[in-house]
Design a protein around this nucleic acid. Sequence first.
DNA 1: CGTGTTTGACCAGCGC
DNA 2: GCGCTGGTCAAACACG
Length: 195
Amino acid sequence: MDNFVSVFPYNNSSSSTSPHLSLNLMNDYSYSSDQNNTYDHLEDDHEHGLVEKNPISSSEEVVLDHVSPTSSGLGNSDGNDMSSASGSRKISIKKGEKKIRKPKCAFQTRSQVDILDDGYRWRKYGQKAVKNNKFPRSYYRCTYQGCNVKKQVQRLSKDEGVVVTTYEGMHSHPIEKSTDNFEHILTQMQIYSSC
DNA sequence: CGTGTTTGACCAGCGC
DNA sequence: GCGCTGGTCAAACACG
């Protein structure tokens, strides 16, 4: 099966497959554990006018959700401090020091498959059942040496056709295999967002 | 044999 | 303090 991926706009009004490509990008670095439906709020954000439209070309459209990133973005995203080869799992956070959350980019795609072939090589390192969602969330990490980009993939239970992909970090290396559409999308993500 | 997946366990944060 | 939840680890396993 080949990866049919149609990225769709948030407005469900145009749920019929539109010929043009539209990407919904959410800069989401601040969700916490009380956010049961992690991404449900994003639709609301869309209505709150947080969306910038950045028409890239005649055939593609990027819809950005900007949630005021604290840091200046993922410019130094290769500094994913999570990966300590020394066995300590979590980041140790000093007292009184606020937890630094990595900016995340999340976007929804309407896809038959969960895994988007974005040209990078990913290794799955976990899967968890998510509250209020009958589909599990999968955790992937880029296998490129020194690249600690992570992504989470989750299918919405209220719309099984929708896959939410959350990227954390930015790749410090070129795409390994070219996939035209996604390469474009990722490039735009890196340009237009601070993710 | 190298690479990727599965899955149970572990840990930390948060709310009550 | 306790339980719930999300995120990660790592051993076992599968596959080309």
